[in-house]
Amino acid sequence: MKLLGISGTIIGAKTGILVKKVLETVKLSYPEVETEYLDLMDYTIQFCDGRPPSAYSEDTRSIIEKVSNADFYLIGTPIFQGSIPGVLKNVFDLIHPRDFRNKVMGFVANGGTYQHYLVIENQLKPIAGFFRAFVAPSYVYANHEHFNENNEIVDPDLLERISRLAEEIVEMQKALKSDQAISIKEQLLIKEEIGR
C-alpha cells in the first residue's frame, strides 16, 4: 500500500509540515505502509489544457504518474482567500477521475483564521465526492497558533487529531483492500459455480 502525501502549494512551510507529520505518524504506527511526500514547490507544473499526459513537460508528467499510481492520499492545502490554491486545483484537473475512484483521501489544511476549516467541508470533500473517492471522517485544520516560532507543531490537540487522521486513512485503506479481495474471491466462486 502506497500513501502519497501531497503538499498542495508553492508558497509557505506550514502545509508541508502538516503533511510530513501525518506521514511520519503513519510510518511509526504502520511501518508496512509505503509513504511518499510530494511537494508541489519542487515542480514546475503546466496548466491542464486537455492534451494527453504524454504531451506535458517532464515535471507535469511526473506529478500525473505519482498521483495516478498511489493507492491512497493525504492531501494538504493552505487556505487562501477562502479557497484552495490554483496549483492544487490544477493537479486535480490533470489527473483522470478514474485514478482517484475508490481510493481513500485524507485532508489537512492550514489558514489564518479558525473559520477556514470549512473549506475542507465545502470544497475538498465535494471534489473527492466527484472523484468517487472515500474520505476519512476526520481531517486536520491548523492555524498559526498551533505552531511555535520555528514552525514546529506545539498544540497537543492538533497532534492528537493528526494521530487520529493517520489511523483512519490507513485503517480505511486496509478495510477497502480487504473488501475488494473478498469481492474478487466471491466473484471467482460464483463463476466456478456457474461453470459446473
Rank of each mutant, 00 (worst) to 15 (best):
I10C: 06
P137F: 00
V104T: 14
A136Q: 08
E160L: 14
K66E: 04
Q123L: 15
E24Y: 06
Y37G: 03
G16I: 06
V33H: 01
Q46K: 03
G111M: 12
V33Q: 07
T44V: 14
R132T: 00
C48V: 06
F80I: 13
N150A: 14
F107C: 00
N110D: 10
F147Q: 06
Q46H: 01
L188W: 04
I6A: 03
I190G: 00
T15S: 07
I127G: 02
N148L: 06
I79M: 13
I120T: 14
L159K: 15
L23N: 10
N148F: 12
G129V: 04
F131T: 06
L189A: 12
Q123N: 03
N69S: 15
S83D: 13
R164I: 15
K177Q: 14
E34V: 11
E152I: 02
Y73P: 11
L23G: 09
L188K: 15
V67C: 01
T35Y: 00
G129A: 14
N102C: 00
I182L: 11
A142R: 09
A166Q: 02
Q81A: 14
F134E: 08
E32C: 03
V170L: 07
N148H: 08
L189I: 11
F100W: 15
V22P: 00
K103I: 11
T15A: 08
N150C: 01
V135I: 12
L18F: 09
E65L: 05
G5D: 06
D93T: 08
T60M: 06
E121L: 03
R51M: 03
K20I: 05
I6Q: 02
S57T: 14
K177T: 10
D99F: 11
G129F: 03
Q173T: 12
R51P: 02
L165Q: 06
Q81T: 10
E58D: 14
R101E: 14
M172E: 03
K89I: 02
E168D: 09
T15Y: 07
E160K: 15
L74A: 08
S138L: 02
K103C: 10
Y43L: 05
I162H: 08
L88D: 03
K20D: 14
G112F: 11
Q187E: 11
A70N: 10
D93I: 07
L176W: 07
A175P: 00
I75N: 05
E167Q: 10
R132G: 00
E58H: 12
A128C: 04
V154Y: 04
G50C: 09
D93S: 13
S62T: 15
H146I: 04
M105F: 07
V135N: 02
